[in-house]
């Protein structure tokens, strides 16, 4: 009887856990933003599937300092490639994997690195400053897997008003 009860609990919990994993939009709601940055409404979380590519076209306004941060469900094991292209100039500004051999700063988009200055583990972020109104295209390639894997990929966009000091 005890085994039956455990089975019931397990069967009830499993669907709830799966549903929670797929509720991508909640990822953004649960993120805490540290001042002076604010959460920008262009942030987006989407259900992605292994072996597929996704694009996010983000219009940026001059006068703001943007910070891009990416997250992905652990089911993908960081096997995702990221590109960011400035559509005004067609220049590629980022072309990096989710994880690298060393996961050193500037070599990966999803894997955290240890910052020697602050002695803290840092999740990678990319600071972008538009000199004029432009759009950024983010291309996300989710690596193919033997089985079809579904998970969330989240593009977090933070912003703050540009200050001259940001350049130094």
């Amino acid at each position: 009887m005890k085994k039956a009860k455990n089975l019931i609990v397990l069967l009830l919990i499993l669907p709830i856990l799966s549903a929670a994993q797929m509720d991508c939009s909640s990822t953004l709601a649960n993120l805490e933003v540290e001042p002076p940055f604010n959460m920008n409404s262009l942030s987006k979380s989407a259900v992605c599937v292994s072996g597929h590519s996704y694009e996010f076209v983000v219009p940026l306004t001059k006068g703001y300092h943007y910070r891009f941060v990416f997250y992905a469900s652990s089911v993908f094991n960081n096997d995702i490639h990221f590109k960011m292209v400035d559509l005004n100039t067609n220049k590629e500004i980022i072309n990096l994997p989710g994880k690298s051999d060393t996961n050193a700063r500037g070599t990966a988009v999803l894997a955290s690195y240890f910052d020697e200055k602050t002695y803290k583990e840092i999740h990678p972020f990319f600071d972008v400053l538009p000199s004029s109104a432009t759009s950024i295209k983010i291309v996300i390639d989710v690596q193919e897997k033997p089985d079809l894997i579904k998970g969330c990929v989240t593009v977090v966009i933070l912003d703050k008003e540009f200050e001259v000091g940001d350049f130094n």
């Binding site: 940026l60 400035d86 220049k91 972008v128 538009p130 004029s132």
Partner: peptide, 18 residues
């Protein structure tokens, strides 16, 4: 309109268009 950042941690985008 072509600012260049001395801070190599900030990526300047948009070019010098208007």
């Amino acid at each position: 309109n072509s600012p260049k950042s001395d801070n190599n941690e900030i990526i300047v985008v948009g070019g010098n268009s208007k």
